[in-house]
Amino acid sequence: MGDPRTDEELLAAVRREPEAFGVFYRRHVSGLLGYFLRRTRQAELAADLTAETFAAALDGVRRFDARRGPAVAWLYGIARRQLGTAMRRGAVEDRARRRLGMGALDLTDAALERIEAEADVATTALDHLPADQREAVRARIVEERDYADIATTTRTSEAVVRKRVSRGLAGLRSRVEGEQP
């Protein structure tokens, strides 16, 4: 059974309970791998970007402010910056990993296949959401659009969009956690 705490509660707990970051990681690693894999089409590059994104998130966890938005949006904000930097510089940064004393990736072909399979889990989980929740999650979390903007596009109210995002994320979480061994 998954940890009942919200993402925001997990991040707030990391300082006194480091394992909370592991729970947060497990919830989102598949989604983030899928996000990077769809954009780079290279499993090793997606893995590298995923590792650096989570390292940057851990490195900056104290700066996360739940009042400014959900933790998952914050995580994908970091992911977008990592992707943009990688595209501009032609190389994935490893600054956060070095700061945390983490090692380099050592990926076998089997590991790369697992990464692609894991990304599929997230894509499948997203596909299983009701259409309105799926689109709301995609627009808010992946494309980082404003609630007001999404509401205008979908011809509904902001409150409804917020509810769809919230329900969609909860659905994703329970589905992805259900996939954990």
Binding site: E19, L58, M102
Partner: peptide
Amino acid sequence: LETELVAAARR
């Protein structure tokens, strides 16, 4: 990666 991240969080 999870092991490394949690180890880093512990440190």
